[in-house]
């Protein structure tokens, strides 16, 4: 069993009303790995991300998490199997306090132990650096803090795999460095990470392995060094206007 990758995506495809958004994409993510998903605009990376997290149902292909087929499962089932995700920008419960935001993922699991929950809230608050804002209302937080809270919520149930949706969007270089450090700290906790991102430089620096999509298909896969030299990748980005 140990030989099997944590996440196996095989032959993934998605059609929206005749338009092929994702076409026969396969890749894996191993335990303890940070995998980046990049590609020019419209490459299908966000759709792939949404398929893997269970937001959309794929038109074809298989997705296995820890050996279990998760295609067609309800989001809460997928979460229970150890997959968590964040959303582009910030997505939190704006009317609830920071602490209550973090509590919801634990409450969602039946038979939650109150003391263990309080302990986990403290841990995660410290991990994402929001301990001082514990009682603030989520919607009143600054953008950066809201996005940290979003990550904190995803971490609450100690997922095996965390999917980050554009974690570096809208950040300046210093903030990007801090967020990248956070991603590596998450990995250090034993959580694998799959992230989709526009900022190619940040992905090159953060990820162990990179999957490049273009026009719905996988065009390259490898270490940052390999991707950097790959002519197909350079072609795809030059041909399709690199977006900043």
């Amino acid at each position: 069993m140990a030989a099997e990758p944590l996440l196996q995506v095989a032959g993934l495809g998605k059609r929206f009303a005749g338009l092929v958004a994702v076409d026969d994409v396969s890749f894996t993510a191993d335990r303890g790995e940070i995998v980046g998903l990049i590609g020019p605009n419209g490459a299908g990376k966000t759709t792939t991300f949404n398929l893997v997290s269970g937001r959309f149902a794929p038109s074809s292909g298989r997705i296995r998490l820890d050996g279990i087929d998760i295609v067609g499962l309800r989001p809460d089932r997928i979460v229970a199997l150890g997959l968590a995700r964040t959303f582009q920008g910030t997505r939190i419960f704006p009317g609830l306090s920071v602490e209550e935001n973090l509590r919801i993922p634990l409450l969602a699991r039946a038979g939650a132990d109150e003391r263990a929950a309080a302990e986990r809230v403290r841990e995660v608050l410290a991990f994402v650096g929001l301990a001082a804002l514990r009682d603030s209302i989520g919607g009143s937080l600054a953008y950066a803090h809201q996005s940290l809270l979003g990550i904190g919520m995803a971490l609450m149930r100690r997922p095996a795999l965390l999917l980050l949706d554009e974690p570096f969007a809208g950040m300046n270089p210093a903030e990007t460095r801090a967020a990248a450090a956070m991603v590596r700290r998450i990995r250090a906790e034993g959580i694998s990470v799959l992230l989709v991102e526009h900022d190619v430089a940040a992905v090159m620096e953060t990820c162990d392995r990179i999957v490049v999509l273009n026009q719905g298909r996988k065009i390259a896969e490898g270490t940052p060094g390999e991707i950097h030299r790959d002519p197909a990748v350079i072609e795809a980005y030059l041909g399709a206007d690199v977006d900043a």
Partner: peptide, 12 residues
């Protein structure tokens, strides 16, 4: 507050 988010933090 947010049904989609609730689903993806594990709420049935």
């Amino acid at each position: 507050e947010d049904e989609l988010l609730a689903a993806f933090v594990g709420v049935a």
